[in-house]
Write a protein that binds this DNA or RNA. Structure first.
Lengths: 74, 74
DNA sequence: TTGTGACTAGCAGTCCGTG
DNA sequence: TCACGGACTGCTAGTCACA
């Protein structure tokens, strides 16, 4: 399964923001935003394809605008 | 089924950009991006919850960055 | 020209576990 | 602390007929 470039970019962006915002573990952040830890792991590696609802949920948990989460994607 | 505010905002943003970019009908735009006309209709009204892959596909069809499509969402 | 209900295949998202 | 796998349920992608 080849992963699209935009998903890799999204995953890296998510991981960067999570750490910048002080969430040192995926599990703590997952609990914070109400998502599963294995799902966060999959998102950060680009193997998962999140819906708009989830993107917004993640952005809220990171205290940034949803557009900010996609800012590195072309 | 109540539609989340962020989906309404996304739908309105999509419709606005579509028209601004010169696609007067959903059908012409749908054909341009390779999606079904009724699916575009559902997105513009917020009844559909698109995945990241779809959001990126729409952005490319509108010749804007994906983040630009979410710029009105909070 | 667009909105809507209904449909199926496949994936989004959860929960269990391992190294 | 994280990557990864299997199994599961509900929901999304994609499409059609019709108003």
């Amino acid at each position: 399964m080849t992963i699209p470039a935009h998903r890799i970019a999204f995953g890296e962006r998510l991981r960067t923001l999570r750490r910048e915002l002080g969430w040192s573990s995926q599990e703590a952040f997952a609990h914070h935003v109400g998502l599963d830890r294995t799902y966060i792991s999959g998102l950060e590696r680009g193997s998962r394809n999140p819906t708009l609802d989830v993107i917004v949920k993640l952005a809220h948990g990171l205290d940034v605008k949803p557009a900010e989460l996609l800012s590195t994607i072309y």
